[in-house]
Design a protein around this nucleic acid. Structure first.
Length: 636
DNA sequence: ACCCAATGCGCCCTCTGCTGGATGTCT
DNA sequence: AAGACATCCAGCAGAGGGCGCATTGGGT
């Protein structure tokens, strides 16, 4: 069926180990020797090959020590795998002699186009060129994607290196079994192709489910199995019981131990009571009903906890505060958070420690960069569900938080809190710059202020009035203010002095007689362009309406505002308003806040240029509610 | 079968910091 | 009047704390 099919294995996308990457030490040693582990493919069509698995292998990341793989019953290793799409570059050679049921599964050699041979055990979905594969150093086991299934490797050569608590996987004499847990073949496959009683066999229980980022998450359970009996069938028909022989250490002990396996998930238990309780989690059966709200629960304990939420009963009270909880575990956790500060879960990469394991797991993502929660609408991916949920508001436009004062809406509660604090609170916290007297409402803005004004800059900044140079913008600005009101331009013909060079240019013309602005409509010339414009409008522009300023008391008109004011003062009335204006005056914005005055004061102080990295890191919030600017001192 | 401690998952919250547009002020 | 620039402000994401609740493991 698949023989001769041209397929390819994408070189670097195959098996991605999520948690534990398991390579038995024995195999590693043998690999170093150039061998292929304990694998001894026999018989016709021997496809033995070197181990060119390359990316097909599950490997321990460099520098990490692999945990010892024991054969303890029920041990689980989480492998995260990727779906593989075969195409032209790899050939599958049918070696279905290894599989008693070739119509279900196929053991093949994967022949790479480049010549490398990937010897693997694959079960391919019928009619599909897509498979999921598990690589456990010596074999690649494929699964039909997204099915919950058990992969039983019952071959006799699944030897157990019991003394070292390691195992060797060999596909010799292998008989593959693919069992769909949900289908009608349940129980049948296990009976087929019975194991070689001479050797301890193992069961690989594999659950494949859709995982993150296109990978499939595989839970692999390695357990011992010698004999299977259909006895003591559990309450649920979907479970099966095995009588397992421990292969740990010596086989003489032959300790008989029952194991109850859930056929729906990977759960196993040695206790029938635990198993039965677990099986109820797969049913909708909820026999325990709350008499107050008619909500149903699976167990009496759940019902009791629920009823406690109605009655407010919280039996576990904290001795150090007023908190109380429904369960003892909640109390213990609360005490760790609030009182004992015991943090048992410590990060191996930094000093972080947490009360809960889940918090450590979340924290580790900040080291690994893993972002399992992908936004469906954009490329954003988050490290936890809440951030993704919060991010989705940027697509939906939802603003769930409303200011109770002005009813402005916000996407995040923290943003609203800042808004209320800054806009509607009396004692607004302010942050004072440690290097000048500037006070800024937000810490982040103070950071911008420090960056822009107090950062040492390598390039020199020159004063526009003199030759002074500075490396800090704030110092430059303060220096330039010293030139303010300074009449630096002095006339060489008289005692006139002014602040701006352009004023001196105009004045000098009074001495030289220069009039560079001639009127195009008459023969008059002017020293200033502005004078020419006034002349032109007054004498050559018919549409020009001159401004008239009326005295508010007597109504007398003036062409100049200053003349009207002078008259008005004699008249005893207040300042008038322009009756007509050629052009609207620009409205002045609201007067400057005391901040400017504060900065002026600061200008008098010596503020050394600072490199930002040398600035005191801590920004002290200044209680600024109504504090006079003079009270704020500059410690720079 | 019951009980309790432990575990794990999910949800929501706060604090923090950066960013860029809007606005105010100065030159 | 216009441009430059400082500050204001909301949007947004990173990181971590805290708790509710379902489930499991194991003792009795």
């Amino acid at each position: 069926m698949m023989a001769g099919t041209e397929i390819s294995v994408p070189p670097e996308q195959f098996t991605r180990i999520k948690a534990l990457e398991v390579i038995p030490e024995v195999l590693l040693e043998e690999e170093e020797d150039g061998g292929c582990g304990g694998r001894e493919p026999p018989g016709p069509g021997d496809v033995q090959a070197p181990c060119p698995y390359g990316p097909l292998q599950a490997r321990v990341p460099e520098g990490e020590q692999e945990p010892p793989l024991t054969t303890e019953e029920g041990e689980k290793h989480i492998l995260t795998l990727q779906t593989v799409h075969f195409s032209e570059d790899v050939q599958l050679q049918d070696i279905s002699w290894l599989s008693p049921q070739p119509q279900e599964g196929l053991q093949v050699t994967v022949q790479q186009a480049g010549g490398g041979e990937l010897q693997s055990l694959l079960w391919l979905g019928e009619g599909s060129q897509q498979c999921v594969a598990i690589s456990i150093q010596e074999g690649v086991y494929s699964l039909q994607e997204t099915e919950v299934m058990e992969l039983h490797v019952l071959e006799g050569s699944m030897a157990v290196a019991s003394e070292e608590s390691k195992f060797v996987v060999s596909l010799a004499e292998s008989a593959g079994r693919l069992k769909l847990a949900k289908d009608q073949e349940e129980g049948q496959l296990l009976a087929e192709g019975g194991p070689d009683p001479q050797v301890g066999e193992q069961l690989f229980f594999v659950e494949a489910k859709p995982g993150d980022e296109g990978r499939d998450e595989i839970v692999l359970t390695v357990s011992d199995l010698n004999v299977e009996e259909q006895e003591d069938k559990p309450a649920s028909s979907q479970g099966h019981v095995e009588k397992a022989t421990s292969t740990k250490k010596t086989k003489e002990t032959k300790e008989i131990k029952r194991t109850f396996h859930c056929d729906i998930c990977v759960f196993t238990s040695s206790r029938i009571s635990s198993f039965n309780r677990h099986m109820k989690t797969h049913t909708a059966e909820k026999p325990h009903m709350c008499h107050l709200c008619l909500k149903a629960f699976r167990t009496v304990t759940l019902l009791r906890n629920h009823v406690n939420t109605h009655t407010g009963t919280r039996p576990y009270k904290c001795g150090d505060c007023d908190m109380a909880f429904v369960t003892s575990g909640e109390l213990v956790r609360h005490r760790r958070y609030k009182h004992t500060h015991e943090k048992p879960f410590k990060c191996s990469m930094c000093k972080y420690a947490s009360v809960e394991a889940s918090k450590l797991k979340r924290h580790i993502r900040s080291h690994t960069g893993e972002r399992p929660f992908q936004c469906l609408l954009c490329s954003y991916a988050s490290k936890d569900t809440y951030k993704l949920k919060r991010h989705m508001r940027t697509h939906s436009g939802e603003k769930p938080y409303e200011c109770h004062v002005c009813h402005a809406r916000f996407t995040q509660s923290g943003t609203m809190k800042i808004h209320i604090l800054q806009k509607h609170s009396e004692n607004v916290p302010k942050y004072q710059c440690p290097h000048c007297a500037t006070i800024i409402a937000r810490k982040s803005d103070l950071r911008v202020h420090l960056r822009n004004l107090h950062t040492y800059k390598a390039t020199e900044m020159k004063c526009r009035c003199c030759s002074a140079v500075f490396h800090e913008r704030y110092a430059l600005i303060q220096h330039q203010k010293t030139h303010k009101n300074e009449k630096r331009f002095k006339c060489e013909y008289c005692s006139y002095a002014c602040m701006q060079e352009r004023h001196m240019t105009v004045h000098t013309r009074t001495h030289t007689g220069e009039k560079p602005f001639p009127c195009l409509s008459c023969d008059k010339c002017f020293r200033q362009e502005q004078l020419l414009n006034v002349h032109f409008k007054k004498y050559h522009d018919a549409s020009f309406i001159p401004a008239v300023y009326e005295c508010p008391k007597c109504g007398k008109g003036f062409s100049r505002w200053s003349n009207m004011q002078r008259h008005s003062a004699k008249c005893g009335s207040g300042p008038g308003k322009p009756a007509a204006l050629g052009k609207a005056r620009r409205t002045k914005r609201k007067p400057a806040v005391p901040k400017e005055a504060v900065q002026e004061d600061a200008a008098a102080k010596e503020v050394p240029a600072v490199r930002l990295e040398q600035c005191p890191g801590e920004v002290v919030p200044v209680p600024y509610g109504g504090v006079a600017a003079e009270e704020v001192t500059c410690d720079g």
